[in-house]
Design a binder for these strands. Structure first.
Lengths: 153, 153
DNA sequence: ATAATTTATATTGCATACAATCTAATTTTG
DNA sequence: CAAAATTAGATTGTATGCAATATAAATTAT
């Protein structure tokens, strides 16, 4: 006897999972970034931290965590590696000694120039127009923000 | 003297990176899945492996790796944990002794019933219609496949 | 003002990811 | 067929992520 597949059965199919689409695309991006970032001596999460700092540095760890949705368990060791690479400096805030302020070193600032070539390469690899990518990005960010809103409840 | 921001400057902004959108959305999904999967005793990557096996099991590790874009360095320890949880069985193929075949145990099959509730909860958390999600999924998958195509060159 | 609470970061433990390397088994080649 | 190359998994080392816990500093409450 042949039994019709229920909606619940369909929903469990790997191909139907937007979540797997996002997960596997994140890994694909990571692999495309790897050779580009190797030249900068950065991993992808380290690159994200540098992007955040190039926009605004001299900020506490918490600030970076909020911008990247990462916590201290991830950031503390990562930042220590960036410090060991002499791209950033970590120092206790004198105003609030709980805070560790993260500032770019001259070397960290300088790396920004080398990093300018990266987005162009990624754009080429995605084989997509800037407009399409921006539209897709906005949709994905909207989805992410709804998910995070649920988590915050 | 005020200098105009170049396109390269703009491209380095965190907010403009589709890649960060995908990366941070993947983490948001992970956090939404966590409490649901805790009830099944699975992590998210383990859940993906189970989804793949519920569709087709008795397959070599390689087959799972190709479907999930993961390699043996990730899968070997993960599969050993699933075996320790008695959800799967690992056995050398007699036809080709290089291969390790992965089959579901009765317990592994049974878990599928409990998992049926998961997609519905995720759909609710995404606060999005099924149609919108499917459309977005297709776009993201197309992007992923273009990225993977570049990697394969 | 002191106790209780909250906050910022650090630490530990567990589970991915993935490059690089290794071993054993199979396939291809000369 | 025997050597060379390829393939499937396993292992090792490095770097995330994140939950849970710890610690010290700041804030709030009584």
């Amino acid at each position: 006897m042949v039994r019709k597949q229920t909606a619940a059965d369909q929903a469990l199919r790997l191909d139907n999972q937007i979540c797997f689409a996002v997960y596997s695309t994140a890994h694909a991006f990571n692999r495309v970034y790897k050779p580009l970032l190797d030249r900068l001596g950065l991993t992808y999460p380290q690159y994200l931290v540098m992007l955040a700092l190039w926009e605004r540095d001299g900020v506490p760890v918490k600030d970076i965590g909020e911008r990247l949705f990462l916590d201290s368990g991830t950031l503390t060791p990562l930042l220590k590696r960036l410090e060991a690479a002499e791209l950033i400096k970590r120092s206790r805030s004198t105003e609030d000694e709980r805070q560790v302020l993260i500032a770019l070193t001259p070397h960290g600032h300088a790396l920004r120039e080398k990093a300018k070539a990266v987005p162009q390469s990624i754009l080429a690899a995605s084989a997509c127009s800037v407009g399409e990518l921006l539209a897709m990005k906005d949709e994905i960010v909207a989805l992410r923000d709804r998910l995070n809103a649920v988590l915050g409840e």
